[in-house]
C-alpha cells in the first residue's frame, strides 16, 4: 500500500457540561510526500485534526476513526509506548508560538541536542556538532550564539527557526505545522517556508500545514483541504483556489484583502 498518512472517518468530540460537542465530524484525507494544507477559520476543527493525529488532545476529547495510519502504524490503536516513538521521531509537530513550545529554562542548544540523542541514538559530541549544523540549516547566521541562548533571548523569527531545528533534528517523515509562520514578519516567513520546502523536495518529507492564510496555501502548497464546522467541504489543487467551486471556499478567498 502507499506510504504516508491515511485518515478515514476521523471524528473528535469534546465532553462539556451540555453534553458532547463535535469538533471534527468525519474527515478523510491522505498526506504523501507532498505539501497539503488544512485551511479554515477559527473553530473549523483544523487544529483539532492536527493534534488528533498525534493523540495530543486533552482527556475530555474522544477520538474515533475508521482508519488512521502512518506507514502502516495504527495511530489510534497502538499503545502509548509505541506512540511516543512516533511522536517527534516519525511525525514532528511545530506550533504557532515558539515561546510556548521551547523550554524556557534550557538553552536552545541543549534542547536540540536532546532531540538528536532521544531519536538518533548518538553521542553528545556528535549531537552537538549536528545541532550547530541544523541551526545553520534553518538559516541562523550565528549558530554558536543561538546554541548558547535561552529562548527569551531570541526574537520571534529566531525562536521559530530554533524550534523548527529541534523538530527536524529528529528527522521526521511527516511534519504537522500548525500556523508555522503567522507569528512571523513577511520577510522572515518566506525563509522559514523555504526550509520546509527544501525538506519536501530534497528529502521526501510529507508536510501538513494547518493555516487560515489562503494566499500562502495558493502559492506554497500542492493540495488544499478546506474545513468548516468539522468537515472538509472541498478538496482541490492549491493553485486552483482562486477558481474554487464551493461557495464557502470562494467567500473565504474573496474576503482576504490583497494588494
Amino acid at each position: 500500500m502507499t506510504a504516508g498518512l491515511e485518515i478515514a472517518g476521523l471524528r473528535v468530540a469534546y465532553d462539556s457540561i451540555r453534553g458532547p460537542v463535535v469538533a471534527v465530524d468525519g474527515v478523510d484525507f491522505t498526506v504523501g510526500h507532498e505539501r497539503v494544507a488544512l485551511v479554515g477559520e477559527s473553530g473549523s476543527g483544523k487544529s483539532t485534526v492536527g493534534r488528533a493525529i498525534l493523540r495530543l488532545l486533552p482527556p475530555s476529547a474522544h477520538i474515533a476513526a475508521d482508519r488512521m495510519t502512518f506507514d502502516g502504524i495504527d495511530l489510534l490503536g497502538c499503545d502509548e509506548r509505541r506512540m511516543r516513538r512516533v511522536r517527534g521521531g516519525r511525525i514532528g509537530m511545530i506550533l504557532q508560538d515558539p515561546r510556548h513550545a521551547l523550554n524556557p529554562v534550557m538553552t536552545v542548544g541543549r534542547q536540540i541536542v536532546e532531540s538528536y540523542r532521544a531519536h538518533g541514538g548518538i553521542g553528545g559530541t556528535e549531537a552537538r556538532r549536528r545541532a550547530l549544523d541544523m541551526l545553520a540549516a534553518v538559516h541562523i547566521r550565528d549558530p554558536e550564539r543561538v546554541f548558547a541562548a535561552y529562548p527569551h533571548q531570541l526574537s520571534g523569527g529566531m525562536g521559530q527557526r530554533a524550534m523548527i531545528a529541534m523538530v527536524l533534528a529528529a528527522g521526521p517523515d511527516l511534519l504537522i505545522a500548525d500556523e508555522p509562520t503567522s507569528a512571523l514578519d513577511v520577510t522572515v516567513r518566506h525563509s522559514v517556508l523555504a526550509i520546509l520546502d527544501e525538506l519536501v523536495i530534497a528529502h521526501g518529507m510529507g508536510l501538513l500545514i494547518i493555516t487560515h492564510d489562503l494566499n500562502l496555501v495558493a502559492t506554497f502548497c500542492d493540495r488544499a483541504l478546506v474545513m468548516r464546522a468539522g468537515r472538509i467541504v472541498e478538496a482541490l489543487p492549491a493553485s486552483g483556489l482562486a477558481e474554487a467551486h464551493h461557495p464557502y471556499t470562494r467567500a473565504l478567498f474573496a474576503a482576504a484583502p490583497t494588494l
Binding site: 513577511v186 520577510t187 516567513r189 517556508l193 523555504a194 520546502d197 500562502l216 495558493a218 502559492t219 506554497f220
Partner: peptide
C-alpha cells in the same frame, strides 16, 4: 518592493535558488 513581493505569496523558484 520586498514587502510587496512577500505579501503576494511564496515564490518557489526564487527561494530555492537562494537555498
Amino acid at each position: 518592493r520586498g514587502l510587496i513581493e512577500s505579501s503576494r505569496g511564496y515564490r518557489r523558484e526564487t527561494r530555492m535558488a537562494e537555498v
